[in-house]
Design a protein around this nucleic acid. Structure first.
Length: 357
DNA sequence: AGCGTCC
DNA sequence: TCGTCTGTCGCAAGACGCT
DNA sequence: TGCGACTGACGAC
């Protein structure tokens, strides 16, 4: 869901903020993956794969191949798992009670990621918000998602269309560039997104892409725009201030406690889990892993232990880079409690981090 | 590149 | 009158590997 | 299932 109209607005009004990037350009970069959107994508993709135990393997299989594809390209993915949504969120259909889709799958995904040597983070709220926080704090280069919400959450880069099968380029949305082209402040941009229609608030009918942008550029805030609009056009559930807060100060993981580590895949456990337990074809899994190993082997002699970030030099593609100032900052100092927990988890597989309220 | 299969 | 919003319809959607 | 393209409807100027 998210803000559907935002993508078309950008394509029409500020296409220069989108660039086509070959996946290889993300080599050695950390990308934050919104796991829930990806899982949903795989579940929605029709050919449902059912194993002999009646389990739907579409998402697990899809995530496996896509993740390996990223690793083959030298990308360092970190998966962000969705937390509980804000109370204000309008969801359609989904009443409380039963199926939290992907709940049983979540354990499977976590297990696979651990064996793959890929870190993941349990978000405290919307996954997009935590992805954006990682990017803002330079723990990740960009957010990989189809959900445009990552932009109003403040992810400086949003990467769409990153798929294993895709031989073409991905779409990279650059937030600073976008703001400049639209002539909006970050706050105004969030308000624009609310006008376009988000999950947290009702919407004023009759305001679409063109009008919303024009009004925001002219008046500078929703508050002032509302004065120019007849009251009967404003719906009762137009709670733009609350929505704004949810975008500007969302519940996110404490990034200073995040430690990201990547390790070589544990092939035997992967085969045990994916093939013997979940009944995915063993030959295919092994072939894929062997290919990945062949790619990784000659390159990296040692997996870098800490030091998650990126070398941001070079690259004529993105000459425009917001400040890389606060760079290492965050980590290094989290040595207390997370350490113990991280160590424990690392033993069995991968690193991760868990917040405490 | 197109198309059938994945379980 | 023109431009923009909104509703409806149709299709393709994920990835692999063999041909 | 949801999205993009096409169309009709509606409001702004």
């Amino acid at each position: 869901m998210g803000i559907q109209k935002l993508a078309s607005l950008i394509k029409k009004e500020a296409p220069e903020s989108i660039s086509a990037v070959p996946p290889r350009d993300y080599r050695d970069r950390v990308l934050a993956i919104d796991a829930s959107v990806a899982i949903y994508q795989f579940n929605a993709a029709i050919p449902t794969i059912i194993n002999r135990d009646g389990e739907d393997l579409s998402a697990l299989q899809g995530m496996f191949y896509r993740t390996v594809y990223m690793l083959e390209n030298g990308i360092k993915p970190v998966f962000v798992l969705e937390g509980p949504p804000p109370a204000l969120k309008h969801r359609k259909g989904n009443s409380d009670g039963k199926s939290t889709p992907g709940h049983g799958r979540r354990d499977d995904l976590e297990k696979m990621l651990r064996y793959l040597g890929v870190p993941y983070i349990q978000a405290t709220g919307e996954a997009e918000a935590t992805c954006a926080a990682l990017v803002k704090h330079c723990l990740a280069w960009g957010t990989v998602t189809e959900d445009m919400d990552a932009l109003p959450f403040g992810s400086t880069r949003l990467i769409r269309n990153l798929k294993a099968n895709n031989l073409g380029n991905v779409e990279e949305y650059n937030l600073p560039k976008l703001l400049k082209l639209l002539k909006l402040s970050p706050e105004q941009f969030v308000e624009l997104c609310i006008l376009l229609g988000c999950d947290y608030s009702g919407k004023i009918k009759g305001l679409g892409i063109k009008k919303a942008l024009e009004l925001m550029q002219k008046h500078g805030s929703i508050e002032r725009i509302l004065k120019t609009i007849k009251k009967d056009r404003i719906p009762a559930d137009f709670r733009y201030q609350e929505a704004k807060q949810l975008f500007l100060q969302p519940s996110v993981v404490d990034v200073s406690r995040v430690q990201l580590n990547w390790r070589a895949p544990d092939e035997e456990n992967l085969v045990q889990f994916l093939s013997h337990e979940k009944h995915l074809n063993e030959t295919k899994i092994r072939t894929k892993l062997a290919k990945l190993r062949a790619i990784q082997q000659p390159k990296e002699k040692k997996t870098p232990k800490k030091r998650s970030a990126q070398s941001s030099l070079s690259d004529p593609n993105n000459q425009k880079q917001p400040k890389m100032t606060d760079f290492f900052m965050a980590k290094k100092k989290s040595q207390k409690q997370p350490q113990r927990r991280a160590a424990r988890l690392t033993k069995s597989g991968k690193s991760m981090e868990l917040p405490v309220p």
